[in-house]
Nucleic acid binder design. Structure first.
Lengths: 213, 213
DNA sequence: ATCCATTGGATAGCTCAACTATCCGATAGT
DNA sequence: ACTATCGGATAGTTGAGCTATCCAATGGAT
């Protein structure tokens, strides 16, 4: 199909698609002449992936670029993609930030991970995310207590065990990679949404339907 | 304290603090003359809250404005604040979007919530967030299966039950409100971070330490 | 064969969010 | 009395993510 049909079918403007082409998010179509190139279903699927990561996952273009580059790289295998995706998700803490309090929070996280016996790379960005949150909580007068953390740890462990088990080991590479990504990025939003819904429910039951309009 | 001391203690520039004052995120100090105003610990706490919501929760200024306005409104009670905070968190789906597929996704969500018997307001934004994610997943060829959702539902329910139970009913109003907010916004990040860590652990165990650097 | 809408490719511009910088007149403290 | 600082206002900057315009080259319809 031509770019205009790609535009129609994806719901994106031609300009936006050209922008994604420029940025290297979308591979070029097969050129049949100077002024004509053809696109196929793979391009359409790629656009859908980009939009899902942008709109639902709220990832910046730069992060999506890194992810799709890894997706297109035949050499990258499934287990490695998770690391790449997680790195792309951030957060990006400028190195050497914040001094003593930051280092203390990092150490809290490190010792928590060690205590749990989780096999996690030492520079996983999720460590920074957790440390950042610990730091903010402390600053607001809500210091972290391990026992308070327990339900979150259990929930995280249960869900990720389920997710990993669900990966079909015989799926074709592209689909397996996509499945991993989807799990990492989109099901995280599912979890957040369900949590907010459950929270509203719990609050309504406790306070007798407080703020529900 | 004066604005310069507030700047030093919060780590924000004077300009940024002035910006927050202009935007109504930070209440004005008590003016002692045309060119002098004094700020107290409450202002410092407010700045810490703003930064936590911005940096950790990644909320836009507009959402934070709505939240702190509710915080400062003596008439708003704890149960109502949760609704306000959740509304401020978004997402903001432009009404009347996307047509048939969108409506179908919304209905999936509505029937799910009904099936679970959860007491959730009909216009809770979390419904939209979930619908949006369902839609994206379907577009990528990963349709939602209720059984796949089960672990997420259970996790969400367990966590929010814990959170609601943890609210001390005798805490002073300001602190109770803050606690609710913190739970909603910051512990969500804790959950995400733990999930990513757990996922990396599960993947490492299954594939023999794949991408961990 | 001709002609005009469409395409690919390049470049420049726009919009929004979140600050950041400058200016100005008043004043507090020395 | 004087000068660094403050509050308040206004304007400018930066980065992300598009969006619009231009241009020469088609290529399908006539």
């Amino acid at each position: 199909m031509r770019i205009s049909e790609l535009s129609d079918r994806s719901g994106l403007t031609v300009q936006t698609i050209k922008f994604y082409l420029r940025e290297g998010l979308l591979p070029k179509g097969t050129a049949t002449s100077t002024t004509r190139a053809y696109y196929d279903e793979r391009h359409l699927r790629r656009l859908r992936l980009i939009r899902a990561l942008r709109e639902v996952g709220d990832l910046p273009i730069a992060a999506i670029t890194r992810i799709v580059t890894a997706l297109d790289d035949e050499k990258i295998e499934l287990p490695d993609l998770l690391g790449i995706a997680q790195h792309a998700l951030g957060p990006y803490i400028p190195p050497g930030a914040d001094g003593a309090a930051w280092r203390a929070a990092k150490e809290d996280v490190d010792s928590l991970v060690a205590e749990l016996g989780w096999l996690v790379g030492p520079d996983a960005p999720a460590r920074d995310l957790l440390a950042q949150t610990f730091l903010a909580l402390r600053g607001l007068g809500f210091p972290i207590v391990l026992t308070e953390l327990r339900p979150y740890i259990d929930a995280a462990a249960a869900i990720s065990a389920h997710e990993t088990a669900r990966l079909a080991p015989d799926a074709p590479r592209e689909r397996a990679l996509l499945g991993t990504l989807v799990t990492t990025v989109l099901y995280e939003q599912v979890l957040i949404a369900l949590h907010r819904l459950a929270q509203e429910d719990a609050s309504a039951r406790r306070f007798g339907n407080g703020g529900a309009s």
